[in-house]
Design a protein around this nucleic acid. Structure first.
Lengths: 249, 249
DNA sequence: ACAACCGTTCCATTATTCGAAACAATTATC
DNA sequence: GATAATTGTTTCGAATAATGGAACGGTTGT
């Protein structure tokens, strides 16, 4: 087991409800001897991958790590464009928006824009969600061929329901969820991808369920499809074409 | 030279105008043999620290790294509060806002909020700036004792000018820069810190020089001091007290 | 098709990492 | 405030992974 793997495992601990770690926590979570955990954290501290929080013995990612997400964001053309688009959409409708990518069966928000409405959904970039259970995730899954989806989700009631949902998304071009992840919160998502790098991102708006009429929702969907369509055209996304033929809601 | 140090050096390459790396670039920048660079990137790929961009031979930070900045942000109370405050300030005035921390003689933006005005300053989190040459940086330097500043900036004309600037900031509680970093762009900054973790952050607003009158600027300064004062009170920042006695502009 | 460049793999040598237990320092409990 | 319990650090030889040079595929550009 190389030290790099262990370092990566430590870094993986951060994220969902874990903002800092101690030696014993690492020892326990990775099943490492105390000694190894201690030395590992020490090395990571010395290289700047971790830093101590205010002289205590808790560790968090070092500030050198803060640059990395920026590098990721700008390394991809689609992501940059999606960020700009969601920012505009978020401003236009006052709702919180996300840009997300899929990682296996999970989706990961890589940018968020908090809405301007008094009642808005809080933004929390970095959270992971199960792809099959949110609008964002399904919009990305819908870009896969049914056979690829089947590889991710073995046969069963879940897979069956998902297949029909994805079929609808492919037909209409957008994805919708109502109070699925969070009670009282609905979400709309549209995905675009770069055929060259084969990277796909999802543009997503989330809003309070009771605050948006069906007419407003359709306005948002149109705006999102417009924005995403612009990106799709710019990067030459062949999969997006189908969405242009979507049936009016 | 442990592999962890080299990995950290690779990660450090990302950020300022560098969103992706190749084997030979790493070999050149770190002065490593091709073979070592190749294996290093391979290992980092396998652990998820890096990923290939769309099957090419360019590498960028892996998506597992995206969680880290979130962990950093939420690991600190001041940072979270500062984010919320700057978000509100940004919305209120329509100008772009930042939250930054100091790292030696540099400042690093850890959160940004793009303004809503038609003419606004673009946001770019992750950029590093020299601390002595921007409002944000000076607001943070002003929290240090003169002796500590002297350690960072050896005697000379720069240090002398800086000392008088910091003195003014300590007296008024806020920091101002006019077209210093970017032509046409002014900035206002106020710093707060957590005495427990001894972490200090700066709240900053940037706006087009020609668009803001002196009266408007004073309104912004008041609002920023209000927001920061609230944070200072909540976390018990002893250094902020002085700012309450600031002379009206 | 050729050349130039970039990236990967092989090898023995070298240096780092490993786990166990003893040691030190912290925090919790009485 | 003293003791106990938990948490973090250091030391050691044995084991393992990292190193750089050179030879080997693969890709790009002319």
């Amino acid at each position: 087991m190389t030290i790099l793997e262990n370092a990566a495992l430590v870094l993986r601990c951060f994220g969902n409800n874990c903002t800092d770690l101690t030696v014993s926590e690492v020892s326990e979570r990775l099943g490492l001897p105390k000694a190894s955990a201690s030395r590992l954290l020490k090395s990571m501290r010395e290289t700047g991958m971790l830093e101590e929080i205010g002289g205590s013995r808790r560790h968090r990612p070092g500030r050198m790590m803060l640059n990395l997400s920026a590098a990721f964001r700008y390394s991809s053309g689609v992501i940059g464009r999606a960020r700009a688009a969601v920012h505009e959409l978020s401003q236009a409708f006052g709702h919180t928006g996300y840009v997300s990518i899929r990682d296996g069966r999970q989706v990961l928000a890589i940018a968020d824009f908090e809405g301007t409405n008094a009642l808005r959904v809080g933004a929390s970039v970095g959270n992971k969600l199960p792809a099959e259970r949110c609008a964002t995730g399904r919009s990305l899954l819908a870009r896969l061929a049914p056979a690829e989806v089947a590889l991710l989700y073995p046969d069963g009631p879940v897979a069956e329901r998902l297949a029909s949902q994805l079929e609808r998304i492919r037909r209409t071009g957008y994805s919708f969820s109502s109070q699925e992840t969070t009670p009282g919160v609905d979400g709309l998502a549209v995905a675009v991808g770069d055929p060259v790098t084969s990277e796909a991102v999802s543009l997503c708006l989330v809003y309070p369920h009771n605050l948006v009429s069906e007419a407003e929702r359709n306005t948002m969907i149109d705006a999102m499809l417009d924005s995403a369509g612009g990106i799709a055209e710019a990067v030459g996304d062949p999969l997006f074409r189908a969405a242009e033929r979507r049936v009016p809601a």
